[in-house]
């Protein structure tokens, strides 16, 4: 391969990298203090959702820490998953996860969403049901953090999210 050919090749790769990258997330990566969250209800019974709602009220004011819930998985760093995951939600949850840009991770909230441990009926009443599905392997690998509790208080969730922000800014634990 001649030198000019190599130059063209390098230039092409450089341009492809410049034009092909996801500008929105790339520019935001420059600010390691913020965390964008996409919430997915895997089929929960809304205890956790109510506490997430509490986090957005002035009492906790999640946004003052640079953490915020976003409307699309394409804007998100973190998928916040509440459980249990039902068979009917397994497909949509996976689709949402696949739509997220890299690097990305999953945080699970509540005992019913503890996918890394075997769910027991003593911690989650729905664990014994036919309707509860396993988390797909590629999502299980991306779990960076779990907030235990039944249901965890807003402060517990908030602390976990702040901790996660530190983890994510170093991009450890993100895939």
């Amino acid at each position: 391969m001649s030198v000019p050919e190599v130059k063209v090749l390098v230039l092409r790769f450089f341009l492809q990298g410049l034009l092909g990258r996801n500008l929105y997330t790339e520019t935001r990566r420059g600010r390691p203090t913020s965390l964008f969250i996409r919430h997915v209800d895997g089929g929960s019974n809304v205890f956790v959702e109510q506490e997430l709602l509490s986090l957005t009220t002035p009492t906790y004011d999640l946004e003052q820490y640079g953490i915020r819930f976003v409307a699309s998985p394409r804007h998100a760093d973190v998928l916040l998953l509440t459980g249990p995951l039902t068979w009917n939600m397994q497909g949509p949850a996976l689709e949402a996860f696949r739509a997220m840009p890299h690097p990305r991770c999953i945080v699970t909230v509540g005992d019913c969403a503890d996918y890394r441990a075997a769910a027991l009926p003593s911690t989650c009443p729905f664990a014994a049901s036919y309707a509860v599905a396993p988390l797909p392997e590629e999502m299980r690998r991306a779990i960076a953090h779990h907030v235990p509790g039944f249901s965890p208080s807003p402060l517990e969730i908030l602390r976990a999210l702040q901790e996660l922000r530190t983890i994510c800014s170093a991009t450890h634990g993100m895939v």
Binding site: D41, G43, N45, W87, M89, P125, F126, S129
Partner: peptide
């Protein structure tokens, strides 16, 4: 139907009348 968790089946298979409130 996305959040169908099989609650009614759990009542009859995993709970007694006295503790079904859980």
């Amino acid at each position: 139907g996305y959040t169908h968790k099989g609650v009614e089946r759990l009542f009859q298979s995993a709970y007694t009348l006295v503790d079904g409130w859980r």
